[in-house]
């Protein structure tokens, strides 16, 4: 039943909503509450007091955000901006939340929870649509379906090229090489060649092959720590490295064999290199074998020589990849040299 304004009405004239249930239209009364319903009372026991509190916080909020505007115009300190911004928004927020919690209808209200599932016939109809239409499309056209699948499959493989392959080069030998060569001059980060008198026994510095000290990639893979130990003559850190440490000088890759952090700490009395990331420790005099922590391999050693002018040079490049492990690395764990 409807009246002049087109609004459905129940028998007593109050609006109803119409539930459409297939063919049946069932008028359902909208929930109505009398204004003196206790559910509509404010939740606060003393609404007047709550109102004052809400008003106070809203005023604090207004003052805060206004002051934030002022602080911004005045280019005030970060702290002043934060206090005005934070107090302003918190005041507004606290006021609004308290308004909702204490001055709005206390309820509680409920809503019905209906099952989400649809009818069995709807379910079956959906399954039928999937199965039967698929049957019409696919079963009779298997060849076309195969062609389409092949098309998508080939496109998937082909699309991987621009999506993945263009991102960077193939690894190739990239992870195996550094810029250290036979005869490379050791220089510091400023490019100054390192003379044997630059470092006293117990001293340590970071060195690079000349020409690569200021390149980002060079800094990463070439970084080498040069240490002068208390010694007379050559330091032999491992068998087969008899000539690698002239005059107490030893040089190791500065890239940790665990995760590639610079092994930046040197404990002089213990003659240990320490990685600050995960505390791996390497015994310098014994070929930088790890004695503590998660590093699995010794730091690769750079064979050194001192040229006739007293400058330090590399006898050769590293005999193994520097840095952390990876699948293609074909070396032994003991000294890291190719197995």
């Amino acid at each position: 039943m409807t009246d002049v304004d087109g609004m459905p009405r129940a028998g007593d004239g109050s609006p109803v909503m119409i539930e459409h249930d297939g063919e049946h239209r069932t008028p359902v009364a909208l929930p109505v509450a009398r204004f003196d319903d206790p559910h509509l009372e404010p939740a606060a026991r003393h609404p007047r007091r709550a109102e004052l509190i809400v008003a106070f916080f809203l005023l604090v909020g207004i003052a805060g955000v206004a002051a934030f505007g002022g602080a911004y115009v005045e280019n005030a300190s970060t702290q002043a901006l934060a206090v005005t911004f934070g107090v302003g928004l918190f005041g507004l927020g606290f006021g609004l939340t308290a308004w909702g919690k204490y001055l709005m209808p206390r309820g509680p209200f409920e809503e019905a929870r209906h099952e989400l599932r649809t009818s069995d016939s709807e379910r079956q109809a959906m399954a039928a649509a999937l199965v039967e239409r698929t049957g019409v499309v696919v079963k009779r056209r298997k060849f076309l379906g195969g062609l389409l699948g092949a098309g998508f499959g080939i496109f998937g493989v082909v699309a991987a090229f621009p999506l993945l392959r263009s991102l960077g080069p193939l690894p190739g030998k990239l992870l195996f090489v550094t810029d250290w060569r036979k005869g490379s001059l050791l220089v510091d980060s400023g490019g100054r060649p390192v003379h044997k008198d630059d470092l006293q026994p117990g001293g340590i510095m970071t060195v690079f092959p000349n020409g690569f000290q200021n390149t980002d990639n060079g800094q990463a893979v070439d970084q080498t720590v040069l240490i002068r130990l208390q010694a007379s003559g050559n330091i032999v850190t491992m068998p087969g490295r008899e000539s690698w440490g002239p005059d107490g000088f030893v040089a190791y890759s500065k890239m940790c064999t665990h995760l590639g952090c610079p092994v930046g700490l040197y404990e002089r009395l213990l003659e240990m290199l320490v990685c600050p990331c995960h505390q791996s420790m390497f015994k310098v005099r014994d070929g930088a074998v790890p004695t503590f922590g998660p590093a699995p391999r010794p730091l690769p050693q750079l064979p050194l020589t001192i040229d006739p002018d007293g400058y330090l040079r590399a006898q050769a490049g590293y005999d193994q990849p520097v840095g952390p492990g990876f699948w293609e690395r074909n070396t032994s764990l003991k000294n890291g040299t190719p197995a």
């Binding site: 909020g61 934060a82 206090v83 911004f85 934070g86 107090v87 302003g88 928004l89 918190f90 005041g91 507004l92 927020g93 606290f94 006021g95 609004l96 939340t97 308290a98 308004w99 909702g100 919690k101 709005m104 209808p105 309820g107 509680p108 209200f109 409920e110």
Partner: peptide
Amino acid sequence: VGSPLYPTFMAKTTGFLLMVSGVVGL
């Protein structure tokens, strides 16, 4: 059972957004 979205929850949750923002600002 609880509070309806409009107006009670909307007030409370908008206020809460402002409070979280205020705390993050501080």
